[in-house]
């Protein structure tokens, strides 16, 4: 019989970092190969499963940054170092790093949307010669919602970084939604470039609109979609948009494709 694609396997939690009140990062002992931007189905027996992006990877471990919103994510928040977390994956498409290399790159993230971009950011911070320039705009609701403080400090040194808060400005943080800062990216001075965008659906729509207004062509824009998923392997139907399965052809899409995906 063929391999059971729905069967989760046990992994050990190595540590938990509290990023914010509602967002924790879980480091899990795992040496499965992944590409930047892919996700796993995390699962707890008796609670269920949910898709979560890999937010970092290292020698023998993967990290997942999880926002507590419902049953499974609540359950994971009850786990600690030494506990078992079940997973299957990795699934989905990834950020096209080969396409990003040796060009200018802009990454725009809203809230937890920074998680699926973090491993890519770390990669380019570790290999600064691989991109011509990197502009990061990371938006958070308020100071209490700021994720990855240590990484952010490093990204500020390595990249052109704008961190923003939805409300009032604070030291190191500008005020306003990410959309209000996109015009600061010097697209006109770029020879060839890419833009990657992740965040809540509304944010992605406004960012795409702003990029379009600034004359950024669709084929330079990359997005990562979130949809309800039960299986992550093209079987349960929940993630479908017309004939496209977000779990298979996504979550990372080029905007030439994403633009036409009408739920």
């Amino acid at each position: 019989m063929n391999h059971n694609i729905m069967l989760p396997a046990p992994y050990r939690i190595l540590g938990v970092t509290k990023e914010t009140k509602a967002e924790y990062t879980f480091r899990v002992a795992c040496d499965v190969e992944t590409r930047h931007g892919q996700f796993f189905q995390l699962s707890i027996p008796k609670v269920g499963e949910a898709p979560i992006s890999v937010s970092a990877r290292g020698e023998g471990y993967l990290e997942f940054t999880i926002r507590k919103v419902g049953r499974l994510t609540d359950g994971v928040f009850g786990l600690a170092a030494g506990d078992t977390l079940f997973m299957r994956g990795p699934y989905g498409t990834s950020w096209p790093l080969d396409e990003f290399r040796h060009k200018d790159l802009a990454l725009i993230a809203g809230g937890t949307g920074l998680a699926p971009l973090r491993s890519t950011l770390r990669h380019f911070a570790d290999h600064p010669g691989e991109v011509r320039s990197l502009h990061l705009i990371a938006g958070f609701k308020d100071l209490d919602s700021v994720l990855f403080a240590e990484d952010l400090a490093r990204f500020r040194e390595a990249f052109h970084t704008i961190a923003t808060l939805d409300g009032a400005a604070a030291p190191g943080f500008e005020a306003g939604m990410v959309t209000a800062h996109i015009h600061k990216i010097p697209f006109a001075s770029f020879e060839d470039y890419n833009v990657a965008v992740v965040g809540p659906p509304v944010m992605m729509r406004f960012v795409a609109q702003e990029l379009e207004d600034l004359g950024v062509p669709d084929e330079k824009i990359w997005v990562s979609f979130e949809r309800k998923m039960s299986c992550a392997v093209g079987k349960c139907g929940h993630c479908k948009i017309d004939e496209t399965y977000v779990c298979l052809e996504g979550p990372v899409f080029n905007y030439t494709k994403a633009r036409g995906l009408l739920d």
């Binding site: 019989m1 063929n2 391999h3 059971n4 694609i5 729905m6 069967l7 392997v233 093209g234 079987k235 139907g237 399965y245 779990c247 298979l248």
Partner: peptide, 16 residues
């Protein structure tokens, strides 16, 4: 088509 082909992987419980 869905259970045995989509995504290039066969779904075990249906297949069975």
């Amino acid at each position: 088509r869905i259970f045995l082909e989509n995504g290039g992987r066969r779904e075990y419980f249906y297949d069975r």
